[in-house]
Amino acid sequence: MLQATDVRFAYDRQPVLHEVSFDLVAGGVLGILGPNGSGKTTLLRLLGGLLRPQSGRIALDGSDLREIPHATLAQRMAIVPQETQLAFDYSVLEIALMGRYPHLRAFEVEGPEDIALARAALAETGTAELEDRSFMTLSGGEKQRVVIASALSQFGRRAVDAADTSDGQAEVLLLDEPTASLDLGYQLDVTATLRRLNTERSTSMVISTHDLNFAAALCDRVVLLRQGRVLAAGPIGDVLRPDTVRALYDVDAAVERHEAAGHLTVVPLTRRGDAAPGGRAGR
C-alpha cells in the first residue's frame, strides 16, 4: 500500500538516499534498520510527505504523495517522532485532540465526537486515565504512548465523515526510533502497544530503528539501510543474519531465535578490529 520506487534524496547536494525501493503491504510492519546517519529519519520524513524526493516516487495506494492534499494524507498517515518536546504545557487530552486537526474545517471547534475519538485513542494506548495530566509531567514511556494516541486520533472517522469517504482504507503509522530514548521497561510498554495496534486494528507501520532486537520483536519485514543504500530487504527471518549485521554495523554478532521471546535476538559480540570509531567502511 505504501510504495517507494527508486527514491533519491540529497540535502544541499549532500546525497542521503540512493535509489531506495521497498513496499509496505497493508497490515504489515516494516522495519528500516541501519546505523546512525544511514538515512533512516530522512527516509521516514520522505514517506510522511514532509520532504519531496529529488527523483523516484512514493505512492500511497497507487497515488503519488505529491498529489494527495495535506489534510487527506494526514487522515490516513501519521508520524510519531523519536521525542516530543513541548514549548508550552498542554493536557494529555489536548495533545490527543491535536490529531483531529485534519478533520476540522477552518475555525471549527472539536465536537463531542472528536473528543470521544481522542479518548478512544488514548484508551487504545492505555493512557485514558492520564487525560487530565499535564503532558510535561509524564514519564518518557507515557509521553510516547500519548503521542501515539494523538497520531491514532488522526485516523478516527466521525459519523458525518464516514458516509462520504470510501471505507476500509488502511492507516499507516510512521515511527521514528520510537524507543530510542526510553529505558527498558518503557521500551517493552511501547512495543506491546504497537503490537496490539497492529493485531487488533491492523494498523500498518513503518518503524525506523537501530535497535535490532526491538525490530525483531515487531517487524515482519525489514529494509537494511547503509549509507543511503538498501543493503538487503525481505522477511526478517531471511534478512537478519550475522553477515548482514556485520555489514551494517561492523560488529560480529550471534543471531538466534529466543524461545521465551518468540523472535530472533541479536547479541553483539565484538567490534570488528579494523573499524575505528566513526570510520566505518566507505566513509
Binding site: L50, H70, A71, A74, I79, P81, T84, L86, Y101, P102
Partner: peptide, 10 residues
C-alpha cells in the same frame, strides 16, 4: 508539538 508533527497533521 514541533514542525514535523504539525506538518504531519495537515
Amino acid at each position: 508539538l514541533g514542525r514535523d508533527s504539525a506538518a504531519a497533521r495537515g
